[in-house]
Design a binder for these strands. Structure first.
Lengths: 228, 228
DNA sequence: GGCCCCGTTCACCTGATTGTAACATTATAT
DNA sequence: ATATAATGTTACAATCAGGTGAACGGGGCC
């Protein structure tokens, strides 16, 4: 399974070079030459990662970035920004919007592929049960059994931790109460109980500023927000 | 794994030609020459799709179609109708229940194989409940419990979401109110059938620009439009 | 044993959801 | 064209799902 990479740039030359290098590195490149097409391509192709030029016709890179982040279906796709000027990049990657990394033009393709590799590895790690999860101000270290909000450790009980960890790992996807009872509590035959609700309430209380990550999907279950 | 295709026609010549073309296209054809045998063959062979001539000895094509649709075990098998006259096909596909597509005789085998391919692809997608459905401007992600029109998330209640998801998964085929009550609401709920109508209305309202996908089939039920 | 922590259950409350009924409109049959 | 059946619309009250706070109870620890 070759990961699909969407490359968005308005210069055909850049697309060609990148396409070649990506194929060489074992990826399947897909292309778009403006912001509108980029958004369409993300929806159609569901790439594993997006390489995004900052300067684009139609809808510029920043805007594309924002739109992708706002939508739960695409919020977790890593974005690598390309730009000519390095100066303003800290702002872009850090706070304003959710780019995950950036490379300044002119760049060495080797460098770019390395960054892509790193981002993909990081994204994949979210599924690895032993990994250290970092979502916005939230830090979850399953190995050490420690959860933090903005660096401040939370005092969670074992069940609370397991619940939070599981929801965060499956972020974006709704978990029914039955599923949670099975996976967190280990109940074989899910019973009718409000236990899950009570635990969610305590979790929310302890999470404080980060409580909004725990979303209720009425009639279905709970979901850890997909957007950081 | 070659998909098995049941071809039902009373003319041996037609069977032979179709059989050859289907094998050529990578399918495994199975044959029946009348309605009774067709029903038996569906039961015994469990084909992935049925090509059904309208005019048949014993039990005619429409009747076979209806019988297959009534039984939950066979209801989801795609049916492609063959007929000599095009005029009455709208009625058959649209109203009388259940055929998924039709081709008028004489037909080009290439055309037929293309239609088969399309129907099989659609059926496969509908079978996987975790799959992300994308139909025109509509996006339905069951795992995340998110439905969007042109990227804008809809706020659907649990029942509304289930109803939309089910109709979209069975797009192109009419669902009777009873069937919807069974599959969306659950068997044991003996509720007024007008409940479905009310929910359809609410769905249409929320779908806005995409409301036209929900078609009313007077006297029968509702259908999610087959064409994107 | 007694105490404390933690998980579970209960009761109550609120707002959203939903089934139904009543009325309006449209399609079909006579 | 008119009658009739089917569906669209609207409104509303009952119900339900989930939030919240508190009580209960068991097991480990002293």
């Amino acid at each position: 399974m070759k990961p699909k990479i969407l490359v968005v740039d308005d210069e055909p030359d850049a697309l060609e070079v990148l396409g070649f290098k990506l194929r060489e590195a074992g990826y399947t490149p897909v292309f778009a030459k403006d912001g509108t097409r980029a958004l369409a391509a993300v929806r159609d192709e569901r790439p594993a990662l997006v390489v995004l030029d900052l300067m684009l016709p139609e809808v510029d890179g920043l805007e594309v970035c924002k739109i992708l982040r706002r939508d739960p279906a695409t919020a977790s796709i890593p974005i690598l920004m390309l730009t000519a000027r390095a100066a303003e990049m800290d702002r872009i990657v850090g706070l304003e919007l959710g780019a995950d990394d950036y490379v300044t033009k002119p760049f060495s393709p080797r460098e770019l592929v390395l960054r892509i590799k790193k981002l993909l590895a990081r994204a994949q790690k979210a599924d690895d049960p032993s990994a250290h999860l970092r979502i916005g101000p939230l830090d979850i270290d399953a190995a050490r059994h420690v959860a933090q909000v903005k660096g401040v450790p939370l005092t969670l009980t074992a069940t609370e931790f397991k619940l939070l960890d599981l929801l965060a790992r499956r972020r974006g996807r709704v978990q029914t109460r039955d599923r949670l009872l099975q996976d967190v509590w280990g109940y074989e035959n899910p019973i009718d109980t409000r236990t899950v609700d009570t635990h969610m309430r305590r979790l929310r209380e302890k999470l404080g500023a980060a409580a909004h990550y725990l979303e209720t999907v009425r009639g279905v279950g709970y979901r850890f927000s997909a957007t950081p």
